[in-house]
């Protein structure tokens, strides 16, 4: 009895939560007539796959995609590399007043990005970095999340391993790359995944740094589909949204465990 009720409730909840995805994909395959019919039709009579080809032409989609990939991969790898080296240093290398320095770094990370937005923009302008990849990527490379989690992780590794490596004459870079990193595969996977998703979805920062169509990333680029016509062509807008969201959904299906562990880890440790 309770089991039946529980299943009914979960089906209801999942339908409600999943509906926007269903609606997005269904609409992306409709004709303009179906999009504007009253009352709404739930499914297209004939799936219009050509909508995807059309949206690809209406706005410079290939360019947006390329920009999004460069932006996402650039920041994700960059911030991981920086979190890895700094995390290792703060966890395992002795330095006078190390903990105080770490505390200062953490405090700096607490400054929200919204307050630094305007001076950052000014600096980018001075450097001529507006509408450039370095402008998109470099200011965003420091990540508290990666640094903090990797430091915690490196601290938890047994000292003996590093002592043994030192006896073999391994320098600190080798200790990091050949001793610590092979023992950090799960956390590496989690961090890379979470960071990729966060940067793929980023909106405010790329919006500030870019103003030319050719440098826009996908989340901003698809907003332009709406204004490309006299009245909104919702089937094309939904096709654009699907193209942006679908890679994430597929990634999520394959790496559900890492996503969920990453989310809980961040919460339980933070």
């Amino acid at each position: 009895m309770t089991h039946t009720l529980n299943h009914l409730l979960i089906i209801l909840a999942a339908t409600a939560i999943g509906f926007p995805f269903f609606y997005m994909i269904a609409s992306s395959l409709k004709t303009i007539g179906e999009v504007y019919s009253i009352p709404m039709v739930l499914l297209p009579a004939q799936p219009q796959w050509s909508n995807f080809a059309e949206v690809w032409r209406v706005v410079p989609f290939p360019r947006f995609t390329f920009n999004s990939v460069v932006y996402t991969v650039g920041i994700t790898l960059g911030e991981f590399f920086m979190g890895m080296t700094a995390g290792f240093a703060f966890a395992r290398l002795r330095f006078p007043k190390r903990e105080l320095l770490f505390f200062i770094v953490l405090l700096t990370f607490m400054i929200p990005g919204q307050i630094t937005l305007i001076p950052r923009f000014i600096l980018l302008k001075e450097l001529g970095w507006i509408n450039t990849y370095q402008g998109l990527i470099v200011p965003e490379l420091s990540s508290a999340f990666a640094l903090f989690l990797l430091r915690e992780h490196f601290r938890s590794l047994p000292d003996e391993l590093f002592d043994a490596a030192k006896m073999d004459g391994a320098g600190y870079l080798r200790q990091l790359l050949q001793v610590a990193m092979p023992l950090s595969k799960p956390i590496t996977a989690t961090l890379l995944l979470l960071a990729s998703v966060a940067h793929w979805n980023a909106y405010l920062w790329p919006l500030i740094v870019t103003n030319s169509q050719s440098m826009r990333t996908l989340p901003i680029g698809i907003q332009g589909i709406k204004s490309a016509f006299d009245f909104p062509q919702w089937h094309l807008i939904m096709a654009g949204a699907t193209i942006v969201v679908l890679p994430l959904v597929i990634l999520f299906m394959f790496a559900q465990k890492q996503f969920i562990e990453g989310a809980t880890q961040g919460a339980l440790k933070g």
């Binding site: 909840a13 999942a14 989340p219 698809i222 949204a241 994430l248 999520f252 299906m253 559900q256």
Partner: peptide, 20 residues
Amino acid sequence: WRLVIFSPHITTSAAMALVW
């Protein structure tokens, strides 16, 4: 079920906002 319920969290706000 867990997958469906968690999925909005990972999607692009700017894209899903258009859907809404």
